[in-house]
Design a protein around this nucleic acid. Structure first.
Lengths: 113, 113
DNA sequence: TGAATGTGCAATCCGTTGGTTGCATGATAA
DNA sequence: TTATCATGCAACCAACGGATTGCACATTCA
């Protein structure tokens, strides 16, 4: 795979991931899950100002982005974090800032010569 | 400030930041700026499949999120990265994964007792 | 001055999204 | 078995977002 097409597929993977993080309700859900542990939909929507259905939809979005996963326990659906995916987001940011630092270095050397 | 309200204001700050990152065209712009250095609107939109106006709007969004800044040079507007803001995004992710690790530790100790 | 270049502004379009409400279904506990 | 509780499904709505086009304005260069 060429460098350019690798960059394209990175972007295609990263955009929905960040988009999923780009909503207050969803971020609150993530904070809630990371501090309070796994929980059912009803449980999670009890802490929230919006309706249960809204929470369901948000969990769906987070799930499609790979940030959470669910498992059945009796009649409940219990949702939990998927921390690997957070690490992915980290990596994308690293990649950008690394490129940036490299570019600055090149510029610096160019000026110093 | 209480812990809860600090968390709320973090969320309010982080959501638009991630939302700005959650678009393919904008991510490509960031990669382009981080690897190719600063550039004018016309320059940046030359590399892109979408129109110049679209690029302008995206730069506006990135600017409101604090990820880029512009300066005039003659009749051009030159846009550049604002790397501090990338570091902010890093921090938010750190906070979530840290909380998660802490929660896991607590759970572990609870089970071990 | 006049032509070319870089940008901004405004209107418009259409798909997506965040949210709601109402009802149906499926599992559990008394 | 019959309430009850946790979800799912569907329709609907208002607002937002990404993109386009057309035109105006400002700056520069010949």
């Amino acid at each position: 795979m060429s460098q350019a097409s690798a960059a394209r597929s990175r972007v295609r993977d990263a955009a929905p991931l960040f988009a999923a993080l780009g909503d207050e309700t969803r971020l609150r859900l993530l904070f809630r899950l990371s501090s309070g542990g796994p929980g059912s939909i009803t449980h999670l929507s009890a802490d929230s100002p919006v309706s249960r259905q809204a929470i369901t939809k948000h969990l769906q979005v987070l799930s499609e982005a790979g940030l959470v996963k669910s498992s059945r326990r009796g009649r409940e659906h219990v949702w939990d974090l998927e921390p690997k995916r957070l690490a992915d987001a980290h990596q994308y940011l690293d990649r950008i800032s690394q490129q940036w630092d490299d570019a600055l270095d090149r510029l610096k050397k160019l000026v110093e010569e």
